[in-house]
Amino acid sequence: MTESATESGQVSRVALGEWLMLAAFIALGIFVYQQINGPLTAQGNASGDPVNNAALFPRLVANLILGLSALQLVQLLRRKVRLSAEFRYKATGDSAWRCLACFGMLLAYLFALPLAGFYPATAAFLLALVVLLKARPIWFAVLVAVLITFVVGYVFEELLRVVLPQGRLGLSF
């Protein structure tokens, strides 16, 4: 969180992320054109009558995005950007690391879910998450993780009758 806002809402230096977001939107606009001229043209759906012409509307939207990006570029050059209100605080490196680790765990959980099945994967995921978020003592964290897993499992399986992932390793409870 490097930038700081002046009274008028203008910033002294535009953050790198602002430029990256803008670049991503411009890339998106170009990507749409690439898709229209590539796969859609190859399928024969980039022209013709309104039924067949699946590129009619994407082209409009791509033009809109590119036009807005040009306006946004002017804003950035004039340093007329506002800081998002919810980020006007300094996050510590510690929190940032913790946040990243959480997303890593979510990633691991999504890999594990179809393999191990709902109950083992979820209990492990929750345990890792609460421990990472500083829940102590550990025995309490374990208790919470297992308890929540079973409560959520019960609610969704028995009351809402959802078929939760079973796992391919043959685990079942």
């Binding site: 939107f25 998106l28 859609l40 759906n45 039924v51 067949n52 699946a54 994407p58 809109l64 807005l68």
Partner: peptide, 19 residues
């Protein structure tokens, strides 16, 4: 506009073309 584009992913409901 991003939302409009995301909704376009998949078969086009009119022509069935893959987008």
């Amino acid at each position: 506009a991003l939302g409009v584009l995301i909704a376009m992913v998949g078969s086009d409901p009119l022509s069935n073309a893959a987008r």
